[in-house]
Structures are given as C-alpha cells and as structure tokens.
C-alpha cells in the first residue's frame, strides 16, 4: 500500500497530495481504478531537487487532485503504461527540464532540435551561451554555438 506523505487543500479548494517516488506507479494505478485520468503534468526546478506535479481529474465526480512527487536524481518512473496521454507531456518535461522518465519507450525531445545542448527551463541553464539552428535541404536540423552556422 502506498503512503501519502501530506494531504491538504490549496486556496481554490483543490486537494494536493505528496507522494514518494517509489509509490507513484502504485498510487496512480489505484487512482486510475477509481476513475481518475491524467490531464497534465508539470516540472518545477527547486534548485536542489526537481518536482513533478501531476494533475488528475475524475470526470464523474468532477474532482481534481494534484499529486506532487520529488526527485533528487532527475529520474522519474514513466506513466505512459497507465495513461497514453503522458507520452508527449513527459517528452516535453524531458526536453525543457531534463527529467528522465524511466520506462518511456520514445523519450526524444519534443520542441527543440535533437542536437540542442542543455535543458533551457533549468535554473542553471546558461542563457549567455546562445545556440543557433540551421536546416539543410532535406529538412535535417543542426545546432551550433557559432553565429555563422545558423540563426
């Protein structure tokens, strides 16, 4: 049985629970059996660790829950086996925050070109090192730190 670390309500009355990373799959399976679906997931950079916040919604009771899970090593279990909708959401978090979802079978970048260095929404991303993108006639994109090599 999974353990809910904290359980309270936010200002708008939405239930917020905190879970341990190891309990995530078990808890989400339980919520899915109760009729909840994943609507969205966010990543937050807290500097010393990363948070992933899952929003789940029950269409029958119109009940929203936000589930917060922390990770210290940039790894999270993937929810794609439970909810197919998590596929692109997890790819987005991998692209912009660098959170690696173990068990996701197609973890590529979603928005940025594959050659991009770093994850731009992280607090330690250096905006001074500008990267430039160019495209050859076949449509393959290349990334470089040299201004002459792209725009």
């Amino acid at each position: 049985m999974y353990k809910i670390i904290s359980d309270d309500k936010d200002k708008g009355g939405m239930r917020m629970i905190t879970l341990d990373k190891t309990d995530l799959i078990e808890a989400m399976t339980d919520f899915k059996n109760k009729g909840y679906y994943l609507t969205c997931l966010n990543g937050v950079d807290m500097k010393d660790h990363l948070d992933v916040i899952y929003f789940i919604h029950n269409f029958d009771t119109n009940d929203y829950i936000s589930v917060k899970v922390s990770t210290n090593d940039e790894h999270m279990p993937s929810l794609t086996k439970l909810f197919r909708v998590a596929d692109w959401d997890e790819r987005e978090q991998y692209d912009l925050m660098g959170i690696v979802f173990d068990g996701h079978d197609d973890l590529r970048r979603l928005f940025l070109p594959d050659e991009w260095v770093g994850h731009p929404l992280r607090k330690d991303y250096d905006l001074k090192k500008v990267q430039y993108v160019n495209m050859d006639s076949e449509g393959n994109e290349h990334v470089s730190f040299d201004e002459k090599e792209g725009s």
Binding site: L112, P113, Q131, Y132, V133, N134, M135, E141, G150, S151
Partner: peptide, 8 residues
C-alpha cells in the same frame, strides 16, 4: 530558431 530556416 526552428522557424527561421523555414522562413528563409
């Protein structure tokens, strides 16, 4: 940046 080569 991804759109710029396409605009060109």
């Amino acid at each position: 940046k991804r759109m710029a080569p396409r605009i060109k």
